[in-house]
């Protein structure tokens, strides 16, 4: 895609006399801080605009009196001035405490730590598969540019690129669960079977095939298109022609000289995918009944469970910032011309 511009993500040269790595790290920390600030402030603002609060939700299911509701508000600290609530939350965060969810009656981290692995597995697996499959499709397509294979791959990519993850998820459920009965529809494991060891791994894999596929397809298309266009671009450049002229084998040219460079935009895209795929995870966790973090956020919206919601946003933004950091580091490995500046 021509829309991701890679130059902008490099930090501008700072004026302080610090070693490059320190400046890089400081810049990144600054960015992380800004993102977190945006998340926390944004959440507080939107939560204020939302009609009703956690106590209305709890009271609605519990036939409470006005006095009981006021008591609860005081207990949860919802009666304090907004700025005080905000400061209390930030002060808590600074001690690495994500707070307490009064709706779940449990610490936020206790709930999230149980659900994070599922979402992490979804994100990591979908990232791995989409990058690999997409890149292979793109490379094959570029090598056979103009042939039927190329056109076929392009057509597949176009369709996948147009199909939202929930559409793919429903289609998979319909075909592979309802009609063919190949994969289980819901959950992460067959709890009643009490599998352990290798059998458990196999069971979980069977449960994850469809969710991961549903999350992948859109990105497979992106990587295929990206890999194809950058490969074509790079293959046209002087050093590749030189390599060819030197009589190096085509395979060597493709995989050593071309692909390495073509990987740069793919790595950038992978960084972006982490932040967008989390949204897809909400839908996929819903359709496949996976006990994940993204679905927790969706439920928390309706429960007005502010601390839980902030917790999910905080943890996922943190993950995204860390991934971006990793992407930057990967850049320096892939492209010797880029250094940490």
């Amino acid at each position: 895609m021509s829309l991701t511009d890679t130059s902008a993500r490099r930090a501008p040269a700072a004026r302080l006399a610090l070693p490059p790595w320190a400046r890089f790290l400081l810049g990144r920390l600054g960015q992380a801080f800004l993102v977190m600030a945006l998340v926390v402030i944004g959440n507080f603002v939107i939560m204020q605009m939302a009609p009703g609060d956690l106590v209305t939700v709890i009271a609605g299911g519990a036939d409470m009196t006005q006095e009981q509701m006021a008591d609860l508000r005081a207990r949860f600290g919802l009666d304090l001035p907004l700025l005080v609530q905000f400061w209390n939350y930030v002060a808590q965060l600074l001690t690495f405490d994500l707070g307490y969810s009064y709706r779940m009656n449990a610490p936020v981290w206790e709930v999230l730590s149980a659900r994070l692995p599922t979402t992490a597995a979804l994100v990591v697996l979908s990232l791995l598969f989409s990058v690999t499959i997409g890149t292979v499709m793109g490379v094959v397509s570029a090598r056979r540019a103009g042939t039927l294979t190329d056109m076929g791959i392009n057509a597949v990519a176009l369709v996948l690129y147009a199909a939202p993850s929930f559409v793919v998820a429903m289609l998979l459920v319909l075909v592979f669960s309802v009609k063919l009965g190949w994969f289980p529809i819901a959950g992460l494991t067959t709890v009643s079977a009490g599998y352990t060891g290798w059998a458990l791994v196999k069971d979980m894999a069977a449960h994850l095939v469809m969710p991961v596929t549903a999350l992948c397809t859109f990105y497979v298309a992106i990587y295929a298109r990206l890999a194809r266009s950058t490969m074509l671009e790079v293959m046209d450049q002087d050093y590749v022609r030189t390599a060819r002229a030197k009589g190096l084998s085509e395979t060597r040219v493709i995989y050593v000289h071309t692909l390495r460079n073509a990987l740069l935009p793919i790595v950038t895209m992978a960084g972006l995918q982490v932040s967008t795929v989390l949204g897809g995870a909400v839908v996929v966790e819903t359709v496949f009944g996976l006990p994940g973090m993204a679905r927790t956020a969706y439920d928390a919206v309706f429960q007005r469970d502010t601390t839980m919601l902030l917790g999910v946003m905080f943890v996922s933004s943190l993950a995204i910032v860390i991934v971006n950091l990793a992407v930057d580091l990967l850049y320096t490995v892939l492209d010797p011309r880029v250094s940490l500046k």
Partner: peptide, 13 residues
């Protein structure tokens, strides 16, 4: 209206 919004709209506002 989701649950919280509903309660606010009908019983408070």
């Amino acid at each position: 209206n989701d649950f919280a919004a509903y309660v606010k709209r009908v019983y408070t506002d």
